[in-house]
Design a protein around this nucleic acid. Structure first.
Length: 604
RNA sequence: CGGGAUGUAGCGCAGCUUGGUAGCGCACUGCUUUCGGGAAGCAGGGGGCGAAGGUUCAAAUCCUUUCAUCCCGACCA
């Protein structure tokens, strides 16, 4: 491609809207343009990058025997009502754009495609003989994100590869899950990315096991906890750990103490002179289920630990049937306004005890009359602990379960693991923290959707059974930006060769120099004939502008028909290292072609 | 949804306090010189200040409403 004929606009200054390097660089180098919040146009160079990423994804998927297809983005609400996700996706998480057509039919713009694919499966899969199957597509997804951010990192419209597999039994599902795990590792590696697979929460997609592929970068939205031995890595949302040991309580007898102005754990620990680990913290949450039922949740957890709301949400979802609900609409710490709706009297905030009386709640048809009491495992064995006295300005010390408070029956793990905690698999290993960008996520769905939607097959024994399913996603556009986040310098982008929009840029420093222009033109033709993806900078610009642009845009190899031309040589510069050398003009094409081939091979 | 901030030319910004009819840098157009690290000079073109309403002789500037965008938080009392 000749730059002179291309829509090629770079910016000298960073647009104010961009915060992180990858977003700034993609805008400055002219790869993307913002059209609305979380909505971007992919310009010609970006589209080439996205197609390269897609092609790598496609090759790795095909290699596992998966088949590519294309599913509709416009999806009837009926399908989502069958799976039970219409309400959660349009109301609770509010992540699905929904619309009504001229005949008053409700439709959603596909944020994901389990419903569609399951419909197809139930209509077409009859027998175990057709299994296993794995169907995938690469397509634009729509999600009404709460807060779109960082350019392509979290957009409301983005490109995703999603795959869905169907199986006769769990063992077959696990085999495909393993194959996908390997395919995803291959994809990330081939794209030149540093990544880490981690245990993950399944979220609203549901199902049992799931794993995320995190691209390591400081700007990542997720925190990863891992051990140096390589045997454990998990998203903080999901991570389990052994907290630091309990310290001995300085109290041996039960006593009520005046502790004015000790609403926070830090202040309390200072005033009563004890470690936060001997404090039992009591946290109040308010959960709203999909049937309109509000339940107040009282959690007892160790003073030095925080509640992991993802874990809590999972526990509360399990308990939903108890309140005749199916899913959670919202989970909040009730503020003063929220408390007014159900509190019979002022709560002793900051001084709540595990036995906070249920008469604080004004029960009604929509508010459960008792607190849902959950105790985190961190305080089940607490001895002589410190906790609130249900009276502003007072705490109790030397308390024990059984003697002073009833240990709640529901014992759960809802503490948030932190860097520095010990690992469960080997307590000698300490968890370290890193930040990552979630680029891929694979799930073992099990029979959740097939059961809900009646997608059955006949097994070898002639029995009707629900299909086992898995689903597997890759954020294609997110991965492309993540690559920039991971690979850039002060001058611009440094694309991994495998996903660079072009491999070589031929620069003529001054197009009015006929000899240099002719040499550039000849090289451009030769690169093309050799099948090398080449850009030709034949613009009427000064040399400095062309050099700056080539670095900003991040083309891996630069060839300059410049000063050394008189000796029959051209300058070749590697973008990543800025390493420069003069090569005889007749050897350049073959040499660079070989470098590119090596670059691509070494990643496979 | 809450909090913070910002909307003035394609991009980055000034001007608003103290109303007087829009400006700077980059980019863009033409010419001259320059020509391997975002050139210099000269001459140009483009916006009516996010939108709507109001106050006023007069509004980017003051008031009201509204829309959009960005950032932080979605949290333990």
């Amino acid at each position: 491609m000749r730059l002179n004929e291309m829509l090629f606009v770079t910016l000298r200054e960073t647009p104010a809207e961009a915060e992180i390097p990858s977003h700034q660089l993609l805008l400055r180098a002219g790869y993307i343009r913002r059209i609305g919040s979380g909505i971007y146009a992919y310009m010609p160079l970006m589209w080439r990058v996205l197609q390269k990423v897609s092609q790598i994804v496609r090759e790795e998927m095909n290699a596992t025997g998966a088949q590519e297809c294309l599913l509709p983005q416009l999806q009837p609400s009926q399908l989502w009502q069958e799976s039970g996700r219409w309400d959660t996706y349009t109301k609770a998480e509010g992540i699905m754009f929904s619309l009504t057509d001229r005949s008053d039919r409700e439709l959603g713009l596909g944020p994901t495609h389990e419903e569609v694919i399951t419909t197809i499966a139930r209509e077409t899969i009859r027998s175990y003989r057709q299994l296993p199957l794995n169907l995938y597509q690469i397509q634009t997804k729509f999600r009404d994100e709460i807060r779109p951010r960082f350019g392509l990192m979290r957009g409301r419209e983005f490109i995703m590869k999603d795959a869905y597999s169907f199986h006769a039994d769990e063992a077959s599902l696990k085999r495909t899950y393993q194959a996908m795990d390997q395919a995803y590792r291959n994809i990330m590696t081939r794209c030149g990315l540093k990544f880490r697979p981690v245990d993950a929460d399944s979220g609203a997609i549901g199902g049992s096991g799931s794993q995320e592929f995190m691209i390591l970068a400081e700007a990542g939205e997720d925190e990863i906890l891992y051990t140096e031995d390589g045997n454990y890595a998990a998203n903080t949302e999901k991570a389990v750990s052994l907290p630091p040991d309990l310290e001995d309580s300085p109290f041996s007898s039960y006593e009520k103490l005046a502790t004015p102005e000790t609403e926070t754990i830090a202040k309390l620990a200072e005033v009563v002179k004890c470690s936060p680990t001997v404090i039992v913290k009591n946290v109040l949450y308010e959960v709203l289920y999909d049937n309109g039922m509000t339940v107040l949740v009282l959690i007892n957890i160790r003073g030095d630990r925080d509640v992991n709301e993802v874990k809590l949400t999972n526990e509360l979802t399990k308990l939903a049937p108890q309140y005749k609900g199916k899913t959670i609409i919202s989970l909040t710490v009730p503020d003063a306004a929220a408390q007014k709706k159900w509190a019979a009297k002022d709560l002793p905030l900051g001084y709540i005890a595990p036995d906070l009386d249920d008469d604080y709640i004004v029960a009604s048809k929509t508010v459960a009359k008792n607190f849902l009491r959950l105790v985190d495992r961190t305080v089940v064995d607490a001895k002589n602990f410190v906790t609130g006295a249900n009276e502003v300005g007072y705490h109790v010390v030397g308390a024990n379960w059984g003697d002073n408070f009833t240990l709640p029956e529901l014992q759960v793990d809802i503490q948030e693991a932190k860097a520095g905690d010990r690992a469960i698999h080997d307590p000698r290993q300490i968890l370290s923290s890193a930040r990552g960008i979630e680029a891929g996520h694979i799930f073992q769905l099990g029979t959740k959707y097939s059961e809900a939607m009646g997608a059955n097959f006949t097994n070898e024994q002639g029995k009707t059974e629900p299909l086992w399913m898995g689903c597997y996603g890759v954020g294609v556009s997110r991965m492309a930006q993540a690559a920039v986040e991971q690979s850039h310098d002060k001058d611009g982008i440094i694309w991994p060769v495998a996903i660079a929009p072009y491999h070589v840029v031929v620069i003529v420093p001054n197009i009015s120099d006929a000899e240099k222009m002719a040499a550039g033109e000849k090289l451009y033709q030769e690169f093309q004939q050799a099948g090398v993806e080449v850009l030709f900078d034949d613009r009427k610009e000064r040399a400095g502008v062309k050099f700056k642009d080539s670095e900003l845009v991040g083309i891996p190899y630069r060839v300059v028909t410049g000063r050394s031309l008189s000796e029959g040589k051209v300058e070749v510069v590697k973008r990543a290292t800025k390493e420069s050398q003069d090569l005889p003009i007749e050897e350049v094409v073959a040499t660079i072609k070989q470098w590119i081939e090596q670059d691509l091979l070494s990643k496979e």
